[in-house]
Design a binder for these strands. Structure first.
Lengths: 214, 214
DNA sequence: ATTTATACAGAACATACGTGCGCAAACCGC
DNA sequence: GCGGTTTGCGCACGTATGTTCTGTATAAAT
């Protein structure tokens, strides 16, 4: 039972949406009336009832501006997390240490992400993968890698590790085996890297990857 | 000049915030009155004026519910896009065709994603990668793959392709070469699959990948 | 031809809701 | 104490705003 909306109903719907973008409260019946060139409030009410019946919005009776958009029209007022994005990381540099305290809210580029990507982690930040050195089997050029700052990785976790001798950051699975760190590519075809523990520093734990094609 | 808010003003502010979380419209003066155990509407008005003067909110005079929170209290209204998530895809089934029209707003699981992942694409939907058949070099078990429905892929694009003879959906780069489709794994170690064009149907173009570790 | 459903118009009604006024209690420096 | 400001109270007024009733027009259904 997919009802097609009349032109007027579409108009009303987009009007409400636009109104909510400009103000922070819903429009009144009369706002909609003048905004959509409707000659009577009862017509607005009539169409609002239809929109409500078909699940496009919800109305609170007897309440002024008691309109709530539903479904795809619903404005998402929701918990998401702004994470700083470190860009322009030179290929051979360690990641600059970034925490809540020292990242500049004004100058740093940020991205708002759904909470589920960050849940339970602290100070998550993003790094845009550039060039080949950071690429692993399931991470490729252009990916946005989400990292949780840490210096102590648990064996098996994928981490961003700064390898002093190579002067580079790499993304690998981390294993500390009596004094030596084994950095294991996820790609089984690639050989692991062995580094003395004091020549490698863990900079973050990979908590997510986001790739946008095009 | 940081004015310290009175206990009552704090209470009002948090009440408005909570109210906005539950409803999709701001509270009235009287809502605040009862919600904060205040005995008179004028007291609410008095404190609202102070909160407005100190920049915590904005009021539209003569407008019911004309309250807008500002600053850190401001609810971030972000344009997120709800995409339906197809779960429980049996390993050997084609993806069910899902469009704006036929996906059930009530029953389908959705995920709210930042717009940049979906910009310019239509009817994007997500598929949770399960098992091995869909895995490619840069996509692994558990990833959420974002697809734009299409049946006509451009050479080189990564697509979800239904291979009739194998009865499975696979994610590969698509190349149509005089009557034969070459499905090329991103992993150069893996061999391409050649399929007659009439035995393969493109179901969607990969527009993004999201991986959440843990 | 009659009925039924949809869509709109105009106006009146009822209440939801912001605002203003007078006054009291509490607080504050002197 | 005393004046002043801040904060709170109760109430009433008036507008803002949802609701409803009556009526019309059109098209499809019977």
């Amino acid at each position: 039972m997919v009802k097609k909306l009349s032109e007027r109903q579409e108009h009303i719907l987009t009007y409400i949406k636009d109104f909510l973008d400009e103000h922070s409260y819903p429009p009144t019946v009369r706002d909609i009336q003048t905004g959509c060139n409707i000659s009577s409030t009862s017509v607005v009410d009539y169409n609002l009832r239809i929109l409500q019946r078909d699940g496009y919005l919800k109305r609170e009776t007897e309440v002024s501006r008691g309109i709530e958009l539903l479904g795809s029209n619903k404005p998402k007022i929701q918990d998401f997390v702004s994470v700083p994005i470190l860009s322009n990381i030179a290929a051979g540099d360690p990641l600059p240490v970034t925490t809540q305290d020292n990242w500049n809210h004004e100058n740093t580029e940020t991205l708002d992400l759904p909470t589920f990507l960050v849940d339970g982690k602290d100070d998550v930040f993003g790094v845009r993968v550039k060039g080949q050195s950071m690429i692993d089997a399931f991470i490729t050029d252009g990916d946005l890698v989400l990292l949780e700052p840490t210096t102590n990785a648990v064996n098996g976790e994928m981490v961003a590790a700064w390898i002093q001798d190579n002067q580079e950051v790499t993304l690998k699975h981390f294993y500390l085996e009596n004094g030596t760190v084994r950095l294991q590519p996820a790609n089984p075809m690639m050989d692991p890297i062995y580094v003395p523990a004091d020549k490698v520093s863990v900079q973050g734990r990979v908590v997510g990857v986001i790739r946008s094609v095009n």
